[in-house]
């Protein structure tokens, strides 16, 4: 139980770090590369990370309750 709890909090922190790094990369890409395609790809990756880790989309097809 405690391991699961710690893992859940750790996942939140890792996701935050990934998103922060990607936001910084995004900012750098806009300034130095000005690549619209790359910016769009980064946005897609960020959205996928949030949907997977924060929104728990996998719960939609899981047999479980709270």
């Amino acid at each position: 139980m405690n391991d699961k709890k710690a893992a859940a909090y750790r996942l939140g922190l890792i996701t935050l770090i990934i998103l922060a790094v990607l936001t910084a990369v995004e900012f750098g890409v806009a300034i130095y590369l000005e690549s619209l395609v790359l910016l769009f790809i980064i946005a897609l990756v960020k959205a996928a990370v949030i949907i997977q880790n924060f929104m728990h989309i996998a719960r939609l097809w899981q047999e479980e309750s709270h």
Partner: peptide, 14 residues
Amino acid sequence: DVVWVFFYPALYLM
């Protein structure tokens, strides 16, 4: 938040 992930670059960066 996901919506803003797309709106932010569209408005400020692209």
